[in-house]
């Protein structure tokens, strides 16, 4: 298994993606993993999980709408997390399934369970997992108040893992204490375990 994190420092921009840190963070974390461990893209799936998704893009588009401003077509293109997974699939010739999930639970458990399910398919050998969450916005802060969730990370952050069929089956950290990583805490801890560092 291999893992990489991105954030809190700014990730390099990705052509065609604007305004939000969400997509550059995802791209950087996944790219770090896939450059370190290339593989057969035709036997690779990608799964992205985020409780709130790209709140920066969503909120910016909505605020522009409310203000009566013309919508930016680039925000339309990146309005779903599919777009950055599509960019990565093109960059790394990945033709397996692409999934985007939202859960109120710690993202690590859901991502690992989904990877296990996908690897039931003998046509797949590995799954790229990425958890991403932006720091709270005015709207998401209001939303978190009514969610049973660990909450947002203190800073924008993405964590990627590549789970290979032949890897020992990873387990999500149990009873991870609340940290500044919010919903990403389990992934951050798992990544640190894989990298041999402390979270």
């Amino acid at each position: 298994m291999i893992a990489a994190t991105s954030g809190p420092e700014a990730a390099p921009p990705v052509a065609g993606f604007v305004e939000s840190a969400f997509n550059p963070l995802v791209h950087q974390a996944v790219e770090r993993c896939l450059r370190a461990r290339p593989g057969d893209g035709s036997r690779t799936a990608m799964v992205l999980a985020s409780t709130m998704g790209d709140a920066a893009t969503l909120d910016l588009g909505s605020r522009r709408l409310v203000a009566g401003q013309v919508h930016n077509p680039l925000l339309f293109m990146q309005s779903t997390a599919n777009a950055i997974l599509g960019q990565l699939s093109r960059d790394f010739a990945i033709t397996g399934p692409l999934l985007c999930l939202s859960t109120v639970a710690d993202l690590a458990g859901e991502l690992l369970a989904t990877a296990e399910l996908l690897l039931d398919d003998e046509e797949l050998d590995r799954v790229v997992l990425v958890g991403v969450e932006l720091a709270g916005t005015e709207r998401t802060t209001a939303a978190y108040r009514n969610l049973r969730s660990p909450g947002p990370p203190a800073t924008d952050q993405a964590v990627a893992l590549v789970v290979d069929r032949n890897d020992p089956h990873p387990r999500p950290p149990s009873d991870a204490p609340a940290t500044e990583h919010g919903t990403l805490r389990g992934l951050v801890e798992l990544a640190a375990r894989i990298q041999g560092t402390s979270p």
Partner: peptide, 13 residues
């Protein structure tokens, strides 16, 4: 109060 309804995961919960 309805901000939480913008969250996909909340809809499932």
């Amino acid at each position: 109060d309805r901000a939480v309804e913008t969250v996909p995961a909340w809809q499932a919960e």
